[in-house]
């Protein structure tokens, strides 16, 4: 299924890396990069959906201004957003126990993944 990818990360390098790997993937339709979770939130609110297309978000946790948790809080507060066919993968360098536990509370998160992105990860996401 054609997948539109969003990567939300304050680190330019990871954005670039993520884009490179996703563009090598088999199911990628588009890749959009966001430095700020606030902007990603706005984009998601405004986007139009097509039923035969999939949307996957890779979300970093540790970002200034609005971090990953803040983004998820905001997202889950707006039920209409949850109806959209969006899968959220947390992609973080954090191996902190408290962070991992805390993420489990968010229903909108599909899986907790560790950086960096790899080819196998892209395949795995495409396949789900």
């Amino acid at each position: 299924m054609k997948t539109h990818f969003y990567i939300i990360d304050d680190d330019e390098l990871f954005l670039k890396l993520g884009k490179m790997y996703l563009e090598m993937g088999t199911c990628t339709s588009s890749v959009t990069l966001f430095n700020y979770a606030t902007e990603a939130l706005k984009a998601i609110e405004n986007m139009e959906e097509f039923l035969d297309q999939r949307y996957v978000v890779f979300l970093d946790l540790n970002m200034p201004i609005l971090n990953g948790f803040g983004f998820l809080e905001a997202l889950e507060k707006k039920p209409i957003l949850l109806q959209k066919n969006i899968q959220i993968y947390v992609l973080t360098s954090s191996i902190n126990h408290d962070d991992i536990e805390r993420i489990k509370q968010y229903k909108s998160v599909t899986e907790y993944l560790n950086k960096p992105m790899t080819r196998e990860m892209v395949q795995h996401v495409c396949a789900s």
Partner: peptide, 13 residues
């Protein structure tokens, strides 16, 4: 665990 890993993970990636 975050700030130090980030540059390392980027390099690994």
């Amino acid at each position: 665990t975050h700030d130090f890993r980030a540059p390392l993970l980027a390099s690994i990636g």
